[in-house]
């Protein structure tokens, strides 16, 4: 049973490298001092979310509302200061495409490194390399250091690596759906099958078209709190106009 469950989860970012006083003057609502008198930003506050197998959840909210932080918390990068977090299922996070890419290494070396990051066994690594080489269509450029790639080539490599395996829980930032039209045309089918294969999708995006298309449930965050959680129509309102989506 694939599951993500958060109970009263809170994440606070300590601000160590700033002057405490000047920040205090600003008196921002989200700044407070914790027990040991440090300035912290409450990035997520008292979140209660339960996502079950089959759900397609979209996260919306302004910049800094906590969408990316929530994705990273689900991915196991940030430990909550309060509350309980439970995740059942293998996680695939499409959060930052360029993370872990070594620009000095060749395409193939980077694919191997990526396999090690994922902890793949030898046979799985071979299959992975084959898959990524074929999908990226980089051909002999795979033997060239990534530093020499054009922007489009880097995107193709990162995308091919990030989407080569279907996880049970797919955590995605909108970057992965916001490529240029040319690229999206090739990526489209793969994205669909990746999302279709995952048991849970959590997608952070500003783009309502994308959210309406991929999601069945929307959670709206504001300043680290949930302000709305429900079916797409209830949170985003009825679709304005049926239009072709790239």
């Amino acid at each position: 049973m694939t599951l993500i469950s958060l109970q009263n989860v809170a994440i606070e970012f300590p601000l160590y490298h700033f002057g405490a006083r000047s920040l205090k003057k600003r008196l921002l609502a989200r700044l407070k001092t914790d027990d040991s008198n440090r300035i912290v930003v409450a990035a997520l506050r008292d979140l209660n979310i339960e996502i079950r197998s089959g759900e397609r959840v979209g996260l919306v909210g302004h910049n800094g509302a906590g969408k990316s932080t929530l994705l990273r918390t689900m991915a196991g990068i940030y430990a909550p200061v309060a509350g309980r977090l439970e995740v059942q299922g293998s996680i695939g996070s499409l959060i930052d495409p360029s993370a872990g890419i070594d620009p000095e290494g060749t395409g193939i070396e980077n694919i191997r490194l990526h396999c090690l990051y994922r902890g793949l066994e030898r046979e799985a690594t071979d299959a992975f390399i084959e898959e990524v080489s074929a999908f990226s269509g980089l051909g002999e450029f795979l033997d060239v250091p990534v530093r020499g790639y054009s922007a489009g080539m880097s995107v193709r490599l990162s995308f091919a690596m990030a989407t080569a395996m279907t996880p049970e829980v797919l955590l995605m930032d909108e970057w992965f759906l916001a490529g240029d039209a040319d690229f999206m045309a090739t990526a489209e089918a793969r994205m669909t099958s990746l999302v279709g294969g995952a048991k849970i999708l959590v997608l952070a995006s500003h783009d309502h078209n994308i959210l309406r298309r991929w999601c069945s449930r929307i959670i709206r965050l504001d300043r680290g709190r949930i302000v709305a959680d429900g079916p797409v129509e209830d949170v985003l309102g009825p679709a304005a106009m049926p239009q072709a989506v790239a």
């Binding site: 694939t2 196991g76 430990a79 439970e86 996880p167 294969g197």
Partner: peptide, 18 residues
């Protein structure tokens, strides 16, 4: 078609309670 998750492998279960 992405590679499906390998069958038969137990999916990891992670619980963190503050």
């Amino acid at each position: 078609q992405p590679i499906p998750s390998p069958p038969g492998t137990a999916s990891p279960h992670r619980v963190f309670d503050a």
